[in-house]
Amino acid sequence: MDPNVFARSILVITEKNMRIYYFKGPVVVFGLLFPLIMFLTFFIGRNLDIVLFFPGFLGMMLFFTASSVGPLITPWEKREKTYERLISLPVILESIIIGDLLAGAIFGVAITTIVFVVCAELLHLPLMNAGLLALSFVLGSIAFAALGTLLASPTTDNPSNIMMLSSLVRLPLIFVSGIFIPLGQLSGWEWILTSLSPLTYLVDLFHASLNGDAVYPPWLDILALVIVILVFIGSAKVIQKRNLVKGI
């Protein structure tokens, strides 16, 4: 396999995704409006410490934006019958999975960076470790974009089914993560539940890099996110490969 051709196939698929899918209704609704409404619902009007909760909000923002593009692409392409043509081009399954993932991750990083910069300016937020923050952005966006791609993998040519499935999966992941309650205050089963959500580790990394009040050591958060990425991408590949064998 020629690595240049492989890299090119990934980049062109990413470009195609950015041009076609960033502006689709479901991406705007589930990626932008949703986290905004969640934020307003939970943070405005209550006397919460904005600095303490900002890492949680930022994590939720990155989670929603990065995971909103992926679930749309493959079902949309199967319905429009562009998928069949795409896989006959010089691409392989991995090009499609990584290209879809990158489109989601770039969307997540771009939107969340804007939100972060604006909020940091307005609220004079602390920033303990800019390098770690950047790494958190990258890892978090890839992990949740990979979740988006995984959610798109079950066969269906109906994008709205997949958007429903992805909400069913994403909302619980938010609620069981440590974004609403600081991790340090949890005990017993609450703690077990939160450690099941990958969002917990991202938010903890944000705590480490912004406020310096993380619960886990950064290497543990990073390790957890890397494992999550590998599991999501691996599962997406297994499912999509099976679809190629079934011819659907």
Binding site: M1, K81, Y83, E84, S88, I92
Partner: peptide, 15 residues
């Protein structure tokens, strides 16, 4: 990848 570079394809159910 190498094989597909040599191909042009018009699928029946593809657009």
């Amino acid at each position: 990848l190498t094989a597909k570079l040599k191909l042009g394809v018009i699928p029946e159910n593809g657009t």
